[in-house]
């Protein structure tokens, strides 16, 4: 019986948070970040010379755009902004008590806010990935054959799935970061550096980053440069459960912190 109530509460909190994402001006930056790759893909499709509109070049260009911009920057930044502010933003705006005064377990509030955040940035970046992918190939004469006879659809599905999975994993990390640190800028920059320099880490350390598991799911690999330490990519059957279990762990830790959270806005 309690599960039914918890599910309804999670739905209600997520709906309320989503309304705030859609209506408040504070999130405009996140929309712009998601629009960035779409604009770049549009410019490329319109202005790139014909020699760069060949299928192999397009496939490599899109892989670069997705990995360097969408995954390592846009989704990462969006998750950092949205999830570190999930509780910290409410504390700064002095609105957290609206949730804490409801008959919802604190863990349920964490899950509700997390679901809203993942829905928001997941949908935003899945849409951005979808649009970017189509735009990049739109200038190619082989568009139809790539999507309807070749691997186009399969690539698209994998990129969108990775965008969604990145939102899920980074969401969990930044939810916890927002609860552990008052100033979340420094840990966010640290995490960005960790994720970006992951390619040069020893194999054992590479395993402690989200990007390590996400890269393995992508359909096209990119050249990671002369300093890269090449490791065996994890199998999706192992990588996806690891990411989901780690996310669950971050959320459980967040729930523990929120359980002891007290409203002393002036002290925060």
């Amino acid at each position: 019986m309690k599960w039914q109530l918890w599910v309804r509460q999670v739905e209600a909190i997520a709906r309320m948070e989503l309304k705030r994402f859609l209506l408040a001006r504070r999130w405009v930056g996140v929309y712009f970040v998601a629009l960035g790759p779409v604009v770049l893909a549009f410019i490329r499709s319109q202005f790139a010379p014909p020699r760069l509109q060949q299928l192999p070049t397009l496939t490599q260009s899109y892989a670069l755009l997705f990995q360097l911009f969408e995954l390592r920057f846009a989704i990462f930044i969006s998750a950092a902004v949205v999830f570190t502010q999930a509780f910290r933003g409410d504390i700064l705006e002095k609105t957290l008590h609206f949730y804490l005064l409801t008959p919802a377990r604190r863990e349920v509030i964490v899950v509700g806010k997390y679901v809203a955040g993942v829905t928001f940035i997941g949908l935003l970046h899945a849409s951005s990935t979808f649009a970017t992918h189509l735009l990049i190939y739109s200038s190619s004469s082989e568009f139809g054959s790539f999507f309807f006879e070749g691997p186009g659809i399969s690539h698209l599905v994998r990129y969108v799935a990775v965008a969604a999975l990145a939102s899920i994993a980074y969401g969990g990390i930044f939810m916890l970061t927002g609860l552990l640190f008052k100033n979340t800028g420094v840990p966010a920059v640290g995490l960005l550096a960790w994720e970006s320099l992951n390619f040069a880490f020893p194999p054992l350390l590479q395993m402690f980053s989200v990007i390590h598991y996400l890269q393995a799911l992508l359909p096209v690999a990119i050249d990671r440069g002369p300093f890269a330490i090449v490791t065996e990519p994890p199998s999706p059957l192992l990588g996806i459960p690891i990411l989901l279990m780690a996310t669950f762990g971050f959320l459980a830790a967040s729930g523990g912190l929120v359980r002891n959270l007290q409203v002393t806005y002036s002290a925060d």
């Binding site: 109530l5 739905e11 309304k19 859609l22 408040a24 609206f98 949730y99 409801t102």
Partner: peptide
């Protein structure tokens, strides 16, 4: 509890706020 904090979740109307919070009550 009617707190002294004079702040509300941004972007919501009075009706949206109350009906949303009531949804959390189940």
């Amino acid at each position: 509890y009617c707190s002294q904090f004079d702040s509300f979740p941004k972007g919501l109307s009075g009706y949206q706020l109350i009906s949303s919070i009531l949804s959390i009550y189940g």
